[in-house]
Amino acid sequence: MQFWVIQTLNSLALGGLLFLLSAGFSLIFGLMRIANLTHGAFFMLGTYIGVSALRVFPNLWLAALAGAVVVGLFGALLERFVLRSLGGNALGQVLLTLGVAFIISDLCLIVWGGDPIPVQTPDYLRKPMLIAGLPFPTYRLVVVVIALVTALLLWLLMERTRLGAMIRAGVDDMQMARAVGIPVSKLFTIVFCLGAALAGAGGVIGGPILSAYPGLDADMLPLALIVVILGGVGSLVGALVGSFIVGFVYTFGTALLPDLAYVILFLPMIFVIAFKPTGLFGKVSA
């Protein structure tokens, strides 16, 4: 019983982290038609920045903010000054993000070294919470709540604000959006920055669960890709549902069949692609 409860919570926590990662990926893809392969590296960079920030001020939430700001700024600069020069050349842009991912990955190795660095869970969240007599790791519950709140905020942003309305217009029909005077190029920078910031914050928040290590980027990127392929690109709901599906499949796969957890990841993806190539909630095909 305890096993199932704990693994369910682990699944939810991983799903929450994956949502922070893939929501940005999906938004960027939806608006800009770029598969941002730097996204795994953004996440890892966030974790490492969290590590350094925690050495200066021992507060995980401030560290997460620092991760969001630094990675978000980096993303904005990358979009504004590098990606933009390849406007219209989607493949070139994707390959460029791949190159940048390699560079970030190696920079992290230079700066933070090759050994895994654990990230401390805040003291007040370390004690397990007792619900119905069962101990629950409190931090994981908090991660799930953060992800759900983020999902809600993103939904409000997209559905209830002017900015969100402009982004939706751009996702639906770029040329029309341009024609009616929506500042599309500014939107690109904002969305890319937002996506990067979410990944950066997600990296810090994931720190206590995953810890910081070289290769974290390469571990997270495929999970994000599978989430987006499952859920459908450009769809926030798809990212949310996909994240939790992958969270569950991966966590239970690892717990029950540790050797083959990765193969089990194939299955939902293959299933969805076979029947609905646009993903569960996707409108545009990738």
């Binding site: 392929i229 083959l260 990738a286």
Partner: peptide, 24 residues
């Protein structure tokens, strides 16, 4: 089943799964 960037993403995801499998 996909084309363009979808094709790129699926091929990448499939091969990363194999890579993870080789480690695990």
């Amino acid at each position: 089943r996909a084309s363009g960037l979808g094709f790129l993403m699926i091929t990448l995801a499939l091969s990363q799964v194999l890579w993870g499998l080789a480690y695990r």
